[in-house]
Design a protein around this nucleic acid. Structure first.
Lengths: 112, 112
DNA sequence: GCATTATTTCCATATTTATGGAAATATAGA
DNA sequence: TCTATATTTCCATAAATATGGAAATAATGC
């Protein structure tokens, strides 16, 4: 991962509403949640929510899929793992041996 | 850690110049670097650098100490660990057992 | 005290980001 | 096709963040 991607991904969760959205989607698991449910649970108006979902999507931290009239959003666990790995490396540069790998974070036993 | 602190810390590194500064300080180890050296290495003018150092300081991700006329800045490894731990928890909420602890990142064998 | 060096603060400006109403788009069922 | 529902896009506005020159502050040695 290059520094620009890291900054983009960090920026996407460096905002309270978006970090809450991401956390909610992580909790929701691989099935995810439709936009409307997210907005309802977090009390965010549609256009504002859409803006934040776009930010997270463009950063690659969430995915979406259409199910009937609903658009389901899901956390991209692999992307979050990549970001954590990048930060861990940068946090520990030069002292790599002291840091655990952060590569096993996902909602099931396998990986998506 | 609460969500607001997490957002503050994330914001402080969600910017290219600041992430570079932090990375440089991590590499510099516990002795750190004086502001002037940071600005020189990263080619950032004094006032801009001072602004970014303040952001990182206020978020708690770096510390400073005066040594003669120089102000040495150091990475706060413990704070970074705390942030990584928060993200790991939030990334894995509900599936805690799949995530490694990220609590052992520091420049020496011990912890600061 | 004065000159030198290191860093910060002040300030104006530019840029980016966030907010949410209203309208547009898309999907599905009757 | 008409209607209802879900979501996005458009738009204006507000707020926060980033930049860097110039001046101010702080520390040191002579």
């Amino acid at each position: 991962m290059d520094i620009k991607s890291a900054v983009t991904q960090l920026s996407s969760i460096a905002q309270e509403a978006r970090l809450e959205i991401f956390r909610l989607l992580v909790q929701a698991g691989i099935e995810g949640l439709p936009a409307g449910s997210i907005g309802e649970k977090l009390d965010i108006p549609p256009s504002t929510l859409s803006f934040h979902l776009k930010e997270l999507s463009q950063a690659g931290l969430i995915h979406s899929r259409q199910v009937s009239r609903f658009i389901y959003y899901t956390a991209n666990y692999a992307a979050m793992n990549g970001l954590l790995a990048y930060l861990t490396e940068n946090c520990c540069a030069g002292v790599t041996e002291c840091c655990p790998d952060v590569t096993s974070c996902n909602p099931e036993k396998g990986n998506e």
